[in-house]
């Protein structure tokens, strides 16, 4: 008999994300991955600031909130205090790639045996859609009303590519654009946790995710934009796999 497809036990029945927000989908997949491996009771999630911080109410696992951007540093501390715990960070792009860039890079540089889930929706979601380092060229946001001027503000920021330069176990960029890519995202999250359980070191999964509210778009169009526009700038795929590298 095929396995029943049910709501993960860790997932709250209701959440505060906007209609179509990718955060809900990613949370569900993290919960599935933890439950499939039977480690949900050992999980400690570290999050910071942004809509991503609702993760603590959506995934009913043990949680610690760090200051804005500091989740990787706090997770490193949790790793030392609780060697047996399954430790992961859950952060948005404004959080991990802007104010918390230093912490993101140093956790990777130390190859902390943790899992990092990085949600790239191209804006500061919670505060009203301001430009993030990840905002696309020409993208209109609350602080780039004529479209992002890359001569003035730099190119869209590629955190995954940067992390892949560090001595880490695994880096992959995924997308929620459609059912097939969502299935691939779940596999990547699974691998990022399997690596941690096997003691392989830092695993980083960047997920291209829609923020329909601040993109001022119908959710279905926002998911289409991930496929047609965002993935042109942010190439999907495995950027680093230390096991494959050493082959």
């Amino acid at each position: 008999m095929a396995k029943n497809l049910v709501t993960p036990k860790l997932i709250s029945e209701f959440n505060r994300f906007c209609p179509g927000c990718g955060h809900g989908l990613i949370a569900k997949m993290i919960a599935q991955v933890l439950e499939e491996r039977g480690v949900e009771d050992d999980a400690i999630q570290v999050y910071a600031v942004g809509c991503s911080c609702f993760i603590s109410t959506v995934i009913k696992a043990d949680s610690i909130q760090a200051q804005h951007g500091r989740a990787p540093a706090v997770a490193s501390g949790v790793r030392r205090a609780r060697p047996d715990a399954v430790v992961y960070t859950y952060q948005g792009d404004g959080d991990a790639a802007a104010i918390g860039l230093s912490e993101s890079l140093y956790a990777a540089y130390r190859n902390e045996n943790t899992t990092a889930i990085f949600v790239n929706n191209g804006v500061f979601g919670m505060t009203g859609g301001q430009m993030a380092p990840t905002t696309l060229e020409g993208q209109k946001t609350a602080t780039s009303i004529y479209g992002r001027n890359t001569e003035l503000t730099g190119q869209p920021f590629k955190l995954a590519e940067l992390i892949a330069q560090m001595p880490v176990a695994y880096v992959e960029r995924c997308s929620l654009a459609n059912a097939k890519l969502i299935a691939q995202t779940k596999r990547a999250i699974g691998k990022a946790f399997d690596n941690q359980l096997a003691g392989k070191g830092y695993s980083f999964v960047e997920i291209l995710s829609p923020c329909p509210t601040n993109w001022h778009m119908d959710p279905v169009k926002a998911y289409k934009k991930l496929e047609e526009v965002v993935a042109e700038e942010y190439k999907l795929g495995v950027l680093k796999d230390s096991k494959e590298d050493s082959k």
């Binding site: 095929a2 497809l5 709501t7 997932i11 029945e13 927000c21 955060h23 459609n178 059912a179 969502i182």
Partner: peptide
């Protein structure tokens, strides 16, 4: 097929035997 279960951000669907 379970596609709706996999893509819904708000866990609306379940597919059970």
């Amino acid at each position: 097929c379970g596609t709706c279960y996999r893509v819904c951000p708000d866990s609306v669907f379940e597919l059970i035997e």
